[in-house]
Design a protein around this nucleic acid. Structure first.
Lengths: 155, 155
DNA sequence: TATTTAGTTCTGCAAATTCAGAACCAAGTA
DNA sequence: TACTTGGTTCTGAATTTGCAGAACTAAATA
């Protein structure tokens, strides 16, 4: 057995969370597995049997996760298998993307505000305030990420 | 006609965006309509005909959006109709929730880290770094939101 | 050349989502 | 009391999603 019962429960919890982030159930559980399991690198077959999902589902999920930079694989000499592992260093950019996406609406909101009749003054002002705050949060955010990246680049 | 062709296009763009935020197509377009239209308050029937979706779909969507505090309605004396409008002042808390949700994974990641074998040192350190940064971003966010709320409370 | 192995692709089903349309209810109005 | 009106609820149909299972490919091995 690759993972304990407790680990399986945690994988499910992580699974539910990542589903909420827009991943499919299979993708979500694979991410969870590779965060929780002691074994950092696993083959398609190992993932399949540990999670109890089909080969095709694992294969599709893995490929999506590689396209989105959440997984990578390593190989071993004289071994055709691929050993998949979580690309954890890349994770920060996913968090970044997610926060970014939450704030991205400000662009469309601005477009909406720009075309509004000037007569609904109170409403327009409320909209403007919100857009400005979103811009403020957004720029702070960029700053924080930039700082973090720089500190990592040096250390 | 309640909205122009250009406004309809913008409503669709907003619709796609809000679908990405987890709303249904009908919900997403109603939010968009009430952000774009000059007329700030609209009845169920007006919404129905402007967007070209069924009464039941509008009704269901409206009720969901009221539960999630994105819409409210006002009434007029001697008029049974409800006039729905965007609860724009409440919008900031939605942005807040969204950002919060993006950062919420840190709690589960911490749980995952805590149960990891100590032997995968490098991986564990990378995980820890990320969790710490997410905590840092999170506290900054809270601070920013708190400040904004306070400034709005006063002004 | 036949067989095994790792991974990929295709087909179709099962579940979930979303909505239209119809029936319905409750509060007024004629 | 019957009719209208605003809103609600129910049912079923159309999509969409996600995956299992089988067929398949390509490389390595016997």
């Amino acid at each position: 057995m690759n993972v304990t019962a407790a680990q399986k429960r945690l994988i499910e919890k992580l699974g539910v969370f990542f589903e909420g982030q827009g991943r499919t159930p299979a993708e979500a559980r694979i991410i969870g597995l590779l965060l929780v399991a002691d074994q950092l690198e696993m083959t398609l077959e190992e993932i399949q049997h540990t999670l109890g999902i089909s080969k095709s589902a694992v294969n599709n999920a893995i490929n999506v996760l590689m396209l989105t930079q959440q997984l990578e694989y390593v190989t071993k000499p004289g071994d055709r298998k691929k050993y998949y592992k979580s690309k954890i260093e890349q994770w920060m950019s996913h968090v970044e993307e997610h926060v970014e996406k939450a704030l991205e609406g400000r662009i469309l909101l601005k477009e909406a505000l720009d075309q509004r009749s000037k007569s609904t003054k109170e409403f327009n002002t409320a909209m403007k305030d919100m857009i400005e705050f979103m811009e403020f949060v957004q720029s702070h955010h960029q700053e924080m990420f930039a700082k973090w990246k720089k500190s990592k680049g040096r250390s």
